[in-house]
Design a protein around this nucleic acid. Sequence first.
DNA 1: ACGAAGAGTCGTTAGTCTAA
DNA 2: TTAGACTAACGACTCTTCGT
Length: 299
Amino acid sequence: MRTDLNLLRVLLAIHDCGNVTAAAKRLGMSQPAASAALSRLRHSLGDPLFVRSGTAMEPTPRARSIVERTREVIATIDQEILPSPTFDPAESRDEVTFCLSEIGEVVFLPALFDRLRSTAPHVKIRCLSLGPKDLLEALREGKVDAALGYFPDLDAPNIYQQRLFSHDLVCLIRRDHRITDARMSLQDFCELEHLQVRDGSRSQEMYESFLAEQGIERKIVLQMSHYMSMAAIIERSDLVAVLPRTVANLYVQYSSVRPIEPPVEIPPYSLKHHWHARNQKDPRHLWLRKQVVELFGGE
DNA sequence: ACGAAGAGTCGTTAGTCTAA
DNA sequence: TTAGACTAACGACTCTTCGT
C-alpha cells in the first residue's frame, strides 16, 4: 500500500476542525481538493474515516485509532526530519577526517589544529594519507571530509576544489656549507651530492619530471621515503635536497640548515582544498571550509 | 541520452446533493 | 434557505514507456 503523507495531514486537519471546509482552509487548499484527498484516503484505508453528523464530520473508530499516532509521526517529520540541520562547533563531538600528505601535515595541520581546538574543542581530528584512487573512493564514501594539498588526480566528477595558495621549491643545505650565494649555480647543483625524498607524492613527480625535461641530472646518493629525518642528515653533510619552501623554513628553526634558491625556477604548484559535492551545502562542511579558507586563503 | 506520447495525479471551478 | 460535502469536467504537471 502506498500512502501519500499529505493525506494524513488532511486526516488530522478534518479531525481537528470537524469539517472538510475548515480543514481545507487550514491546509491552504480548496474544499473539493480536501474532499478528494479524504476520498483517496478512504479508498486507501478501506474505511469511511469520517461520517457526516449534522454539520460536523464524526470520526469513525478507525480514524480515532490512528489519529494520535499519525499526529506524532507528522510532528516528528516536521520538527526533527525536515528542518535544515545546523552545526554548532562549540558543542559538536563529531570527528573530522582530513587526507594530507606528509608535507601537508607540516604545512596545514599546526594552524588547522589550533583553529579547530579553539572553535570546536570537542571535535576530534583524524588525518589519513591515501593514494589517489583510495582517496577518491574515501571522499565518495564520506570516509574523508576533505583533502588538502596537491592532488591533481582529484579533478573528477562530483569532487569540488578550491585553490588555496601556491607552493614553491627551494634547495636545502647545511648552514656552514661552502656555498654562500643566495642562489645555487647550475654547476654546483649538478656536482653536489643530493638527498632525494621519494614519498610517492604527485608534487614530487611533478618537479622530478620538470628537472628531467630541463636535462638536469643530479647525483643522488641517498633516497628516503619521508621528510622527517632529512634535516638531521643535511646538517651533518654537504648534501643538497629539493623541498617545498614552507618545509625548509620550518627546518631552519630547529636545525643547522638554510634554504638556497635553486639554479632554475621550478614551477610552483597549487595547493587545493577538495571535498565531495554531497557536502557542498552541509552546515558542518560549510563551517569546516570557512576555517580552511580563513587560515590558508582561497580563490 | 533524448524527445514525444500517453497515463496518472492532483488541483481548480461550477454545479448538485443533503441535513439542519 | 443555508452551510457544507460531494461529483464532474477540465487543466497543469509529473512519470513512464517507447522509438530514435
